[in-house]
Simulated assay, not measured.
Amino acid sequence: MEKWFNVGKIVNTHGIKGEVRVISRTDFAEERYKIGNTLFLFLNEKDQPLELTITTHRKHKNFDLLSFEGFSNVNEVERLRDGLLKVPESQLGELEEGEYYFHEIIGCTVYTDSGEEIGSIREVLAPGANDVWVIKGKKGKDILIPYIKDIVLDVNIAEKKIVIFPMEGLLE
C-alpha cells in the first residue's frame, strides 16, 4: 500500500480565475509546486485521491497560490477547499547529506551533548534563514531549537535520536 505525505492544505480560493490558497507543509515548496508537477488531493479518507497537475504557482503573503489543469474559474475550484494535497512516497527525491524531510525529523527524541533528554520534536517551522524545531519538553513546555550546525551536533534518523549543544539560554 502506497504511503502518502502531506505537502499542503487548500484553505480557500483566490480570485476568479481558478487559483487556490495553500498553506504549505512541505520543506521544498519551489520544487514541489513546480509547473507540470502532479499532486493528489484528498477530500476525505474513503474517496480515491484526485490527481492534479500544476499550471501556475506563486507566493502571496503566507500562502502558495496554485492553479491546476482543467480548473479555470472559482466555481470549479470551490469544491477543492479543505482538501489535503499529498504526494506518494515514490515522488520523494533523494536528499543530500545533512538534509532531511520534515516527517523524518518529527518524532525524534532530542538529547543534550551531556546525555540529558530534552523531549521529542513535534513540529518543524521554516521561517526563513534556517528551520526551527519545536520540541515538546518533558515538563510540557515547548522549546524552540534552530537547525544550525553550531547547535545540532548529530542527527540519527534510524534511531530517531538527535544530539544538540545547548548554547547558553537556549533551553530556558
Rank of each mutant, 00 (worst) to 15 (best):
M1A: 15
M1H: 15
E2A: 11
N6A: 08
V7C: 05
V7T: 04
K9V: 08
I10H: 01
V11H: 03
V11M: 13
H14W: 14
H14E: 13
I16L: 15
K17H: 15
G18K: 01
V22L: 05
V22H: 01
I23F: 10
I23K: 12
S24I: 06
R25Q: 13
R25P: 00
F28M: 12
E30L: 12
R32F: 03
R32W: 03
Y33V: 00
Y33E: 00
Y33A: 00
K34E: 12
K34M: 11
K34D: 03
K34N: 08
I35R: 12
I35E: 10
L39E: 01
F42T: 05
L43C: 08
N44M: 06
E45Q: 15
E45Y: 13
K46F: 15
Q48K: 14
E51W: 07
L52A: 02
I54H: 01
T56M: 03
T56Y: 04
T56F: 04
T56D: 07
H57M: 15
H57S: 09
K59E: 09
S67E: 02
E69G: 03
F71E: 00
E78Y: 14
L80A: 02
L80Y: 03
L80M: 11
L80S: 01
R81D: 01
R81V: 08
L84K: 13
L85D: 01
P88D: 08
E89I: 12
S90G: 04
S90N: 09
Q91Y: 13
L92P: 02
L92N: 06
L92M: 10
L92G: 04
L95A: 05
E96Q: 15
E96S: 13
Y100D: 03
Y101K: 07
Y101D: 02
H103M: 04
I105Q: 02
I105Y: 04
I106Q: 07
I106T: 09
C108I: 04
C108L: 06
T109S: 09
V110D: 02
T112L: 09
T112K: 07
G115T: 07
G115E: 14
E117L: 11
I118Y: 05
G119L: 06
I121D: 01
R122Q: 15
V124K: 08
A126E: 15
A126M: 14
P127A: 04
P127M: 09
P127H: 08
A129N: 10
V132S: 02
V132F: 14
W133E: 02
W133A: 10
V134A: 06
V134D: 05
I135G: 00
K136T: 11
K138P: 01
K138H: 08
G140Q: 07
K141M: 08
D142K: 12
D150K: 13
I151C: 07
V155Y: 06
N156M: 06
N156L: 06
N156W: 08
A158K: 10
K160E: 13
V163F: 09
P166F: 07
M167A: 10
G169H: 12
L170E: 06
L171R: 06
E172I: 13
